[in-house]
Amino acid sequence: MTDLGEFGTDPGSLHADTYIPKSFPKNGPLIVVLHGSTQSAEGYDRGSGWSELADECGIALLYPEQRKTNNPLSSFNWFKSGDTSRGGGEPLSIRNMIKQVVDDHGIDPSRVFITGMSSGGAMASVMLATYPEVFAGGAIIAGLPYGSADNMMEALVRMKGYGGPSDRGLDALVRGATTFDGPWPTISVWHGGSDSTVDNSNADSIVRQWQNIHKVEGPPTREEQVDGFPRQVWCNVEGREVIEEYIIGGMGHGTPIMAGGDEGLGEEGK
C-alpha cells in the first residue's frame, strides 16, 4: 500500500492509502474500501484480502483511513452532522481522494465502487447517499442506513436495532442528500446473522432505504442460495439487479470471506 499524499482539500482530516496492482489496465475499475472501528486501512486490507483480489482481477484500491484525533476508536463519523453531508467533512475528503486516484491512474469514472464494514459500512451508506453520481455500486457490510443517527447516543441505540426513521423517512433522507435523480448506484448488503455489535435489522433497513429510490418496493424478485447462503434480489422493470441482501447465518460482526483453500483470501478472524 502507498500513501496517497496530497488529494486536494481535506476537511475531514483523513489519511489515505492506495494499492495499484502492477497488472492494472488503463480504464480499469476502482474500489474504495472503508475499514471498521478500531481498525487501520492496512489491518483491514490484510484481514479482508482485498489487495490479493486486486492482484488477481486488476482492480485499483483506495483506502481512506480515520485518524484517532478525529475519533478515539478510529471509527468514521457516520453519525456526526458535519461528516454526513455533501460538500464538507469526511465525505468531501473521500470524494477528493477518489478524484485524485481516478486522475492519477486513468481509472474509468463509470467503474468506481465503494465498500465498508461496520462504521466503514455506515460511511459507505453516507457516500452512496451524498455522492451517488460517483459510484456504480456499493457494498455495505455490517453497516447502518444513511441518516439513521445524529449523535453518538443515537448511533449506539441504532446499532442495537432500536428506533430509527420510518421507511418513508429513510427514503427521504437519501433523496434530500443531493439534487441527483439517477441512475442510482446498485446496492449490496451483507450482515452476519449473529452480529451482536450491529443488529442485522439494520441490513433490512438499508434495503428498505433504497427500495423506493430504485422503484423496487415489496418482496424480493427472487430468492436463491449461493454457496449455501441465502441471497435476496430486487430487480427493476428492465430486469436489472439493483439491490441484493445476504444474511450470513451464524456469523458475528465482520466481513464474510473464504480464507481457506487454494483460492482463499485474507485472514480469518476470531
Rank of each mutant, 00 (worst) to 15 (best):
G89Y: 08
S93Q: 04
S93D: 06
R95P: 07
I98Q: 01
V101A: 06
D104G: 06
H105R: 10
H105V: 00
P109A: 13
S110Q: 13
R111D: 07
I114V: 15
T115N: 11
S118W: 09
G120K: 08
M123F: 13
A124V: 03
S125F: 03
V126N: 01
V126F: 04
M127Q: 11
M127N: 06
T130V: 13
P132W: 00
E133D: 14
F135G: 06
A136N: 08
A136E: 11
G137H: 09
G138Q: 01
I140L: 13
I141L: 14
P145R: 05
Y146K: 04
A149K: 04
N151E: 12
E154A: 11
M159T: 11
G161M: 04
G161I: 12
G163E: 05
S166C: 08
G169D: 07
L170H: 05
D171T: 15
A172P: 02
A172F: 06
A172Q: 11
V174R: 05
G176F: 12
G176Y: 08
A177I: 00
D181K: 14
D181F: 09
G182Y: 09
G182E: 07
P183Q: 04
P183H: 12
W184V: 08
W184N: 02
P185V: 03
T186C: 12
T186N: 12
I187S: 05
